[in-house]
Amino acid sequence: MTPALAVHDLRLLIGGAAVVDGVGFAVAPGEVMALVGESGCGKSLTAHAIMRLLPDAVRQDRGYVALDGDNLSVLSERQMRLVRGRRMSMIFQEPQAALDPLSTVGAQVAEGTGSPLRQARAAVLAMLDEVGIADPARRIDQYPFELSGGMCQRVMIASALIARPAVLIADEPTTALDVTIQAQILDLLRRLAIERGTAIVLITHDMGVVADIADRVAVMYAGRIAETGDTAAIFARPRHPYTALLLAALPRRTDVPRSRLAVIEGRVPAPSEFPTGCRFAGRCPLADARCRAETPLLREVARGHLSACWHAEAVR
């Protein structure tokens, strides 16, 4: 089956540094794929590159994105506008910042349809209802400051999904929300993926979120994919030392707020000081001379399970 979204060998440069290097993955319709990694590893840039909304400072010099088999890199900006919102859309970490404070909720959700609110009103009301907003007839004419953070994220989801895109990219959609709201938003995304067959790329730095909702995971480290495979397989047996450390840091089924990946010794190198060889070598308990000299490429260690580690078999 053709994946809903496929990213091939993406490389993004800031100045001379490859902040994203060789990133690729595919997501099937109705599937939730998590892109996990510490702050600064290039998750958001990857998301913006997929939407072709990269900041000025960032240049893509390799790779391409395919939507349902169509290569987007051949499209003009004008054609790309017809893709955004209709075939693929995106939601953001700070829902309140992602909404224009001076436009009403309804006007912004209607933008996803391409028609003004006057014409799209019924569709907007139905969509607000679908994302679980109570009393949509009142909310539709309110401004974002009159809504809670969780409600703003529901509005964002409504605006992203109203045109029934096949792909939704969710960049840390729950990080700014408190734990109960976080669970509700994740449930909503999960339900939409199932009911509408939307392929979801869920960006997070929280392995707990991954366990809750992702079918598959791609773990990123310093701009590269370290390991990718089914969530169940990776949680059962990680094949990359970085993933293993992330999982070891995850509290077991407790009510404590979820850990923030920063518990691993050392820090992520800045893009300007990425080492040759494996970028994780500076923090890796298994690192040896080969790791520091040669870059490990992703290779299949089990069916559908890939790891970029010279010592994948030794990880436990």
Partner: peptide, 26 residues
């Protein structure tokens, strides 16, 4: 540089439309 501009463009608005509909008033 604000997120709501990126978000508006992610909904399919052109840069010009995002400027006219959202940026100028802010």
């Amino acid at each position: 540089g604000r997120d709501y501009v990126t978000a508006a463009r992610a909904r399919g608005l052109s840069m010009g439309a995002a400027v006219v509909r959202h940026v100028l008033r802010n």
